[in-house]
Amino acid sequence: MDQELHYEYNVEGGDFSRAGYASSQIKKILKRLNIDAGVIKRTVVACYEAEVNIVAHAYSGAVYFDIESNRLKIVFRDEGPGIEDIEMAMTEGFSTASEEVREMGFGAGMGLSNMKKNADQLNIESEVGRGTRVEIIINT
């Protein structure tokens, strides 16, 4: 990319009607920039999983999207209960999601492992009782 761009979006905890809005905006931006379709798909699938996690588990959060010279950096920061055991949370099938989340078609304990699969780098930091920061790096 010739130019470096920065975007921010708010994500409300519990608001499933808007879950995916930020990821959708990111997809539109990447399409306008003519990024490779496979890269776009990996990016937005990872973003959508992260965004749904904020809606499903946190009280509020924000998405910081940076387009850098040879990579995309998307940071999801939330205020919420945090993750007690990140290694356990990464295990496919492990989930603490509510019934409401499951009714939406999520909460099967696949989100974090799918993010890892799609991202070139996935960094998760969490403090119980405070919140979580998820960083997704995609090389372009």
Binding site: F16, S17, A19, G20, S23, S24, K27, A37, K41, V44, V45, C47, Y48, V52, M104, G105, F106
Partner: peptide, 15 residues
């Protein structure tokens, strides 16, 4: 058989 907004969002992200 899941008819909600997230079904559409999922389709959008998955092309």
């Amino acid at each position: 058989g899941l008819a909600n907004l997230q079904t559409i969002r999922t389709a959008e992200m998955s092309d």
